[in-house]
Design a protein around this nucleic acid. Structure first.
Lengths: 345, 345
DNA sequence: TTGAAAGCGCTAACAC
DNA sequence: GTGTTAGCGCTTTCAA
């Protein structure tokens, strides 16, 4: 069953059938009605591949994320997908697991499917692998600054804002020995968060002890290992700031195993504010980076670029800010059992 | 740049170019080589829409899941996607949020894109909405029994096995008043788990108190609310079995808020065994239903159906079993502080 | 073994 | 307003 069949039964030309289907206003309502009736009757659905082929528009956006099993990303996927569907777009999703090989494969798949744009939510990893897309003038949007040039947008993330709040919160609770568990440092975002931490410490005159800066993997397992390192130090930190929430969960787990109470013995702050953060025990104080907002910005960046008439000289820059969300995982520096002020519940 | 361009530059016909690209063995190696050289040189990628149009095969599978923000599903998506890519398939993903409207939309999108098969991982929700796909003879595979008929496979899940183990484990720890927090009962899977619980209790002569059977939502929030109900009862349960791990996390959270210690005051068992389960505090004893295995079975069911020469009379039935994984969230019934036996770690 | 050409289902330019 | 028709990029007969 194809559009010719519809046209024949509605006693119109295929052109008119096509126009009716696409709601071109010049079609006489009466004819359009006839076409739609036949469509209903036969349960006809236009073939998207044929449409894409002739129109040169696939109505597919690529979405590249780091790791779908990290709860940070599903929320992005969900919002992105929802908006996409509203705009009659489909998503070609790839979870790379930070594996360059999978990025390469993804790029090939996306070019083959002729995606109209790609959102790159890998937070500063191997952007060079995407040159092939850029060459083909496929609109691109990066979380946390990737490539630049025409058709390439960037969502700059203001890490400093939230991390500064976190550090100052800990300082207010009299913490001096504050550890930082970064993500894998080859991620630009991980490095940027680390720098924001260092700068925030220096701003308020707190010493930054190199030994308290350890590298994690943005996973629970990495958090466990990293806290292990920190605990083996001659002078343990009294508070730990983590580069993402999964790391913080690892820290909480390791603390539990070692009989360290959070927050009494150790204050912990995460980063991301995944949905789960409010439900762990104790609820995790963390720096929020809105997944929904990020997804929205990314989608709109792509849509804007696709709809742009004049070829853009250079991509747009968007900004997403971060801020501290107080919960239960921080406390006045050890020994004092009073509840700290400013807690939300 | 298209296949004609390639053919021209390689000084062959488009037919030969096409054959070379598709590695048809009858092409003289010399010519094939020439074609591939040109392809390399120009960075040519075949247009999938055109291929799909002419071959009638989209190389897309649909994947319908309940809720991507429930950690159970990302693992399915990950494994499914990985296998799909290995077979040159793409995924058209929909997270329905258990909203029938979104299922309808998804079905339309999938038909329009001419998916070659659909894996339905919504665990017994609104299968009727998929009739349209069945009518079109699109191969279907259901987790936990959906429709039946030609081209329709089902992955039956042996809930009883794991749930019986869970109940017997609790009974061995002297629990008698065991609560059960189900999922939303319009899900067939939720109802099936509930029945498995009831049967397991009856098998060993334990009374099933209707008041201890409460309905949740398969979310943390639902677990919190459900435990709230259970705690308001005149006789509280000493153990709670949950229909999924998210519910169990809610139970743990609510217990924490109310000063109830897990497992000393209350034993908790989950269902699913999401990756996170081993890292919560205490680590969650749960019934495992392998997400990776489920994804594999589903993909293979679809692939088998697509590759089948003879039109199948009726779909295949697969079975996925479940079993208990012991961790830290259960304990001898209250008062006794000895560690229960049989614990792993 | 290779090439010419038809045609997958649709849209859009052009003619009426 | 509506119809005729070319052609999107590819695969696949069929003929050579």
């Amino acid at each position: 069953m194809d559009i010719r069949e519809i046209a024949k039964r509605a006693k119109v030309s295929t052109a008119t059938a096509s126009r009716a289907i696409n709601r071109v206003p010049t079609v006489k309502p009466q004819l359009a009605k006839r076409v739609w009736n036949v469509i209903e009757e036969l349960g006809y659905y236009p073939n998207t591949q044929a449409r894409a082929l002739v129109s040169g528009r696939s109505r597919i956006f690529g979405l590249i994320i780091s790791e779908i099993t990290n709860p940070f990303f599903p929320e992005i996927v969900q919002v992105f997908e929802r908006i996409a569907v509203q705009h009659q777009y489909e998503i070609l999703l790839t979870s790379t697991g930070n594996d360059p090989k999978r990025v390469e494969t993804a790029v090939r798949r996306m070019i083959e499917r002729r995606v109209e744009g790609v959102a790159v939510m890998t937070f500063g990893m191997e952007e060079a692998l995407l040159e092939d897309l850029k060459l083909r003038k496929v609109p691109l949007v990066f979380a946390d600054v990737g490539l630049s040039g025409p058709h390439v947008s960037n969502i700059r993330i203001d890490y400093l804002h939230g991390i500064r709040q976190a550090v100052q919160h800990l300082a207010a609770l009299r913490h001096q020995k504050i550890g930082f568990i970064s993500g894998p440092l080859r991620l630009k975002s991980a490095e940027a968060r680390r720098q924001a931490f260092i700068r925030s410490m220096e701003e308020i005159g707190l010493p930054v002890d190199k030994h308290l800066l350890v590298e994690g993997t943005h996973t629970i397992e990495g958090g466990i290992a990293a806290l292990g390192q920190l605990l083996s130090l001659p002078t343990r930190p009294t508070a730990v700031l983590c580069s993402n929430d999964m790391t913080a969960l690892g820290v909480m787990r390791k603390s539990y195993e070692d009989g360290i109470n959070i927050p009494q013995d150790l204050s912990v702050i995460g980063f991301d504010d995944i949905h789960l953060a409010q439900f762990v025990l104790p609820a995790l104080t963390t720096v929020q980076m809105s997944q929904a907002e990020l997804a929205r910005l990314a989608f709109n960046a792509l849509l804007t670029e696709v709809q742009r008439e004049t070829s853009s000289t250079t991509g747009t820059e968007y900004v997403l800010t971060t801020h501290l969300v107080l919960r239960e995982s921080t406390h006045l520096v050890s020994g004092n059992t009073r509840r700290p002020p400013g807690r939300k519940s």
